[in-house]
Amino acid sequence: MAENDTAEMADNGTAEEIIICQDVCKWFGDFQALKDCNLRVQAQEVVVIIGPSGSGKSTFIRCINRLEEHQAGDIIVDGIPLTRDVRNIEQIRSETGMVFQQFNLFPHLTVLENITLAPIHVRKMRKDEARDTAMGLLNRVGIPEQADKYPGQLSGGQQQRVAIARSLAMSPKIMLFDEPTSALDPEMIKEVLDVMQELAETGMTMLVVTHEMGFAREVAHRIVFMDGGEIMEVGTPEHFFTNAQHERTKLFLSQIL
C-alpha cells in the first residue's frame, strides 16, 4: 500500500510534497470540527495557519501526527499513509515534532533529561551521545546554562525554547507548532519567534498555528486561513495582507491588524 502510494506520487512529479491532506473530516460527537480540508505542503516550506478560535486550526495539525484521529479523507506524511496501522503511526510520529501552547515539558525531569528522553528510549541512542546532542540544541536555542534546572524554574519563554529543543532532538523532518506563543508574556514572545525563524531558515518544514501576524508576514511561505472547520483561503503573505479574496478573511484581518 505504502509502496503504491509513493510510486504514484513519483509519477505525478509531486514527490516533494511532504504532507498531503485530502478531504480530511473530523467530528467531535455531532460537531464537525474539520470539513473537507485540503492542503499540500512542500518539503522545506513554512505554512502558517490563522483563523478565529474554534475554527479547527489546532485540530487540523493535531490530526497530522494522530493526536486526533480523522474520520474521513486521507493524510499522507512523507509518503506514509496515516491509517489505523500502528507501525505507520509510529513512523509518522518519529518524523514529526510538535510544540504545544502549554509547553508540556515533563516537570519531574531536568531540562537535559527532557531533551534526551525520547532519543534514548525511542531512538535507542547512547546516553552520552544523546547528552551531547541535547547540549548542542540548547546552545542553538540559546539557553545552555539551564541544562540542569527543572522546567518549573524557567520562564515561559525559556520553557518553550526547551520544548522546541526537545522536539528537534528526534531530528524530525516536519515541525508542528500549536500556538507556541499564546501562553507567553509579551516580552518573551520574541525570543521564541526568533528561534522559530532560525529554524525556518535552516529549511525545516513547518506548520505553524499562530496569531503572530508579524511572524506570518516575514517567515511564512504560504498562509492558510481557516474558519468554521474549513480552509477558506490559501496564499502567499503578500496576497493575504493586501489582496485577500474572501469576505471572512478580510473581516478577520480587519479585526486583528
Binding site: 501526527n65 493526536l67 509510529e90 510520529r93 518519529s94 514529526t96 515534532g97 510538535m98 504545544f100 502549554q102 508540556n104 515539558l105 515533563f106 516537570p107 519531574h108 528522553l117 525520547a118 528510549h121 525511542v122 520544548a163 526537545r166 522536539s167 528526534m170
Partner: peptide
C-alpha cells in the same frame, strides 16, 4: 497528570507503556 503530558510524550514517539512508566507514573 494533565492530558498535555501524555500528548507531548506520544508526539515524541514514546509508546503507551513508556509514557506510563517514564512520564505519567513518576508524576
Amino acid at each position: 497528570v494533565s492530558k498535555g503530558q501524555r500528548e507531548a510524550s506520544t508526539a515524541l514517539g514514546l509508546t503507551a507503556g513508556q509514557t506510563l512508566r517514564l512520564i505519567i507514573f513518576p508524576q
